[in-house]
Design a binder for these strands. Structure first.
Lengths: 108, 108
DNA sequence: CGTATTGCTTCTGAATTAGTAGCGCAACAT
DNA sequence: ATGTTGCGCTACTAATTCAGAAGCAATACG
């Protein structure tokens, strides 16, 4: 039974986008993907990059992301899979958007 | 003091992308934005769209998203702001991606 | 008046996350 | 062989967050 088949928190289930939004809507998940943008990181490096996130939660997130085949573990630590990199690319424009957003919020 | 200035959970702060990832990485936030893709929804309609999400949490998310000027309240309920719609567009390709992803997870 | 709907608050218990300590393992040095 | 170091990860408790139900105040309608 894969991660997208089982009833997903807050989702009427079945629809992949719901499973995805549920997966990504867990604390640190987006951040972990983001921190892997530059390549593989070890468990502890990843933990440090996420400013000291709890190892228990990190481990849990990594398990979820690995099951979802977005992240994979290799000899050099954890890295985005090919699919994970695709996903990250979709988030790429977020950075530019967030800068405009921040400017607008500051200016009023 | 705006939402992007104050120290943000799990972020070394200051960088807008971190504030954004933190904001979006709260339960239901992505989902709420997603459910508003088709236009304004009333509080209770939004709650129903999110399959019965707690009104307390919905209210909290709406407050956060309104402060972030991603969502705005009008006579016809809650809707994405112009900026919010921009953000949603960035997530658009997610749907297609999620379908490929679901297929891949099912097939192996 | 009575009823209905809406936005939202309040409350309690459940689930999730935070934070710290430390285990078992491997590589390397003494 | 005996530290020492760093690694991935687990175990545990405390704090925070969320779920779920009930219901209030406001508005609208008959």
């Amino acid at each position: 039974m894969s991660i997208i088949d089982r009833p997903v928190r807050g989702s009427d289930s079945g629809r992949p986008i719901m499973a995805l939004l549920d997966l990504l809507g867990r604390r640190w998940t987006l951040r972990v993907i983001w921190e892997l943008r530059g390549g593989a990181l070890s468990f502890r490096a990843l933990q440090a990059a996420c400013s000291g996130m709890s190892p228990s939660v990190l481990n849990q997130r990594l398990a979820e992301l690995r099951e979802a085949q977005i992240v994979e573990a290799g000899g050099d630590g954890y890295a985005l899979s090919a699919r994970g990199r695709e996903l990250l690319e979709l988030f790429g424009p977020l950075q530019r958007w967030s800068e405009d957003w921040a400017r607008a919020l500051r200016d009023g």
